[in-house]
Amino acid sequence: EVIFAHGSNPGNPRYTAAEKWAELYAACSGEEVNHAPAATMGDDAEMLTSAAAGVIQVTANSQGAMSQVVPEVGLLGLPFLFKDLPTAWEVLDGEVGEMIDTRAQNAGLKVLGFWDNGIRNITHVSKHVAAPEDVKGMKIRTPPDPMTLAIFEALGANPAPLAWSELPTALQSGVFEGQENPLTNIYSAKLHEITPYVTMTGHKYESTPVVAGLSWWSGLSEDAQKCALDATAEAGEMQRQMVLESDETLRPKMEEEGAKFAEADTAAFQAATASVYDDYAEDYPDLVAALKAAAGLE
């Protein structure tokens, strides 16, 4: 039995894609797949530990948690790196993706492919944050992801990581003034009801790495390995389309429910976060250069 685990609830594109993966892989390999959604097998970091230890076999995970194991994955979230989702996909499906897979294998994990998590935007309880100055001093919740923390530190905000499950209470309690997430996540957790001011900053791209335990992967026959890769690619194509479409359909839906949208001054934000590139280029000069080139920034 193959356990495919992730943290999303029904209705989220990740859930639908995981269901698809289970169906495809089972049909192709003849093995039974146990689809375990909604973080029933632990949160993202715990699922990575479990996959590496062979407790579960595959997880559709998050870029932030994954970057705590393979720091290079975090570079995909460099501020304003990809101009749109298709550019990001092209980079991930190419050499950069292969390089990340090589690094992951050192930590006992095998990357099967990259699904999508969308581009992130900021929501605030009481105001729009169209310019970098509006973010200065803002108490903002981020995922436990070093890149996101670095971006908001560069902007002079006051970021702190908190588990996703505790976010609504923390926002209601005024521990944070706002948070940042793709629209899909904001909508599915009804965060726009607590933080109705949505600024379309698009400050950061996030993938959903689909990761297997290396020991399980190595024990598979070549045919079964191909089944796993194909299932990841096929379910991923569907998932990416869903994310792309949902970003367009969600905005009017959220506006109807009282969310107030505004555009951000992207150029000003880009200038204010340029130092993040310099900081990361110190540790990863080649990869930062390669990403910039691949994304068409240079």
Binding site: T49, A52, A53, Q68, G108, L149
Partner: peptide, 18 residues
């Protein structure tokens, strides 16, 4: 196996291994 996997995991702000 779990201990080994946790040597690869770092806490985001503290930078300490799990």
């Amino acid at each position: 196996p779990i201990l080994k996997a946790s040597t690869f995991q770092t806490l985001a702000t503290l930078g300490i291994k799990q």
